[in-house]
C-alpha cells in the first residue's frame, strides 16, 4: 500500500521516486500469501570468474607496437650505450666509444621520434614539458631526456667532429651516468598502468629492461667496434643477457596467472624468440671474441633479442589488457583473501 495520503489538506507523506524498491510488493502489499519463501539467497555457487559478456575491463592500450616497443628498445639501447661509451672513453677504446655514442644519439633520437610519432597530436609534443609530474614516469622520463638528450648529442657530435674535446668528454660522462636512468625509466613507465601483466611485474621489469638494454648495447658494440676494443661490450652483453633472462624468468614465475600472456600468443612467441636470440647472442659473445663475423652476428642477435623482448612485453601487455580474467581473477582473490582475513568487502553484504 502507498504510505502517502491525499488528505483534504493535500498530499502527505510523499517520498521521492528514487527510494523505490523493486520486489518489495509482497511486503508492502501485506500479501503474505504470495510471499516467496526466500526472496534472494546466495545465487549460483560462485564461478571462478565472471565478467560482462567477456568484454575486457580495461580499455585497450592505444599505443602502436612499432612506435612504443621501438621507443622502449631504442631508449634502452641509447641509455646503456651511453654508459658503455663512457666506460670505453675512460678506458681508451675510442672506436667502441664512438660507435656507442652514435648509437646513443641515434637511439635516443629514434626513441623520441617514435614517441612523437605515436602521439595523437604530435604537434603538441612540447606539452610534455608543460608540467613536471613526479607521479608520471612519462613526465619524469621527458625531463630526463631533456637532460640526457643534449648530453648524448654533444657526446656524439664532439666525438665525430673532434671539436671541444673537454666538453665532449664531460658530455660523454654525463650521458654515461644518465644512461642507466634512461635505460630503465621505461620499466616504471609501462608498469605504472593498470595493465595486469605489466603492473604485476613492476619489481622485475626494470631488471628485464636494463638487462635487455645492456645486451643490446653490448651487441651494438660487438657489431660496430673492432673485436679488440669490444671486450667490455661482450661482457656487458653477457651480463645483460643473463640479467634479462633471469629477471624475466623470475617475473613470470612470481606473477602467477597474469604471466600467461608472456607465454601465449604473440607476446609469448616474441618472448621465446627473444630468449633464444639473447642466449644465442650471449653464447656468441662468450665464444666468438676472435671472429669479427661471429661477433657481429652475435651482436645482431643480441640487438634483435632485445627488440623482441620489448615487443614481447608490449604484446603481453596488450593481451592481458584484452582479457578480463587477468583483471578480475587476481583482484577477486585479493578481495577473498581480505574477506577471509576479516577485513570484509567494502560495502559488500
Amino acid at each position: 500500500m502507498n504510505t502517502s495520503d491525499v488528505t483534504k489538506q493535500g498530499v502527505r507523506g510523499a517520498r521521492p521516486g528514487r527510494e523505490a524498491v523493486t520486489g518489495s510488493a509482497a511486503v508492502a502489499g501485506g500479501d503474505r500469501r504470495g510471499r516467496r519463501r526466500r526472496g534472494e539467497r546466495a545465487v549460483v555457487p560462485e564461478a571462478e570468474f565472471r565478467s560482462y559478456y567477456g568484454k575486457p575491463i580495461l580499455n585497450q592500450i592505444v599505443w602502436q607496437a612499432p612506435d612504443i616497443a621501438g621507443y622502449l628498445f631504442l631508449g634502452g639501447l641509447a641509455g646503456a650505450s651511453s654508459t658503455l661509451a663512457a666506460g670505453a672513453e675512460l678506458t681508451g677504446r675510442p672506436a667502441l666509444a664512438r660507435a656507442l655514442k652514435y648509437t646513443a644519439l641515434g637511439g635516443i633520437s629514434g626513441s623520441l621520434a617514435a614517441l612523437v610519432h605515436d602521439l595523437g597530436r604530435p604537434a603538441r609534443f612540447l606539452n610534455m614539458l608543460r608540467v613536471f609530474r613526479p607521479t608520471s614516469p612519462m613526465s619524469v622520463g621527458s625531463w630526463l631526456l631533456v637532460g640526457y638528450g643534449p648530453l648524448a648529442g654533444a657526446a656524439a657530435v664532439t666525438g665525430a667532429t673532434g671539436l671541444f674535446p673537454r666538453i665532449g668528454r664531460a658530455a660523454t660522462l654525463g650521458a654515461g651516468l644518465a644512461g642507466p636512468a634512461v635505460a630503465c625509466y621505461t620499466a616504471p613507465l609501462v608498469c605504472d598502468t593498470a595493465v595486469p601483466s605489466w603492473h604485476e611485474g613492476y619489481r622485475e621489469m626494470p631488471f628485464v629492461f636494463v638487462g635487455s638494454a645492456a645486451a643490446a648495447a653490448g651487441g651494438m658494440g660487438m657489431l660496430a667496434a673492432p673485436v679488440e676494443q669490444a671486450a667490455p661490450a661482450r661482457r656487458t652483453a653477457v651480463i645483460g643477457s643473463v640479467l634479462e633472462t633471469a629477471a624475466a624468468t623470475y617475473m613470470e614465475r612470481r606473477m602467477g596467472m597474469v604471466a600467461e600472456p608472456y607465454r601465449q600468443g604473440r607476446g609469448g612467441a616474441l618472448m621465446r624468440v627473444a630468449k633464444a636470440l639473447t642466449l644465442a647472442g650471449a653464447a656468441g659473445a662468450l665464444l666468438g671474441h676472435r671472429s669479427r663475423a661471429l661477433s657481429a652476428a652475435s651482436g645482431a642477435a643480441l640487438l634483435a633479442g632485445s627488440a623482441c623482448t620489448r615487443f614481447g612485453v608490449f604484446w603481453a601487455g596488450v593481451q592481458s589488457a584484452g582479457e578480463p580474467k587477468y583483471t578480475v581473477v587476481p583482484q577477486r582473490r585479493r578481495l577473498e583473501k581480505r574477506r577471509a582475513d576479516g577485513h570484509g568487502e567494502p560495502g559488500g553484504s
Binding site: 502507498n2 504510505t3 517520498r15 521521492p16 521516486g17 528514487r18 523505490a20 524498491v21 523493486t22
Partner: peptide, 15 residues
Amino acid sequence: FQWVMEAKARGAVVI
C-alpha cells in the same frame, strides 16, 4: 514512468 516509481517509493505494488 517516474510517477510509477514515485508510487513505488511510497509502497505501491506495481504489476
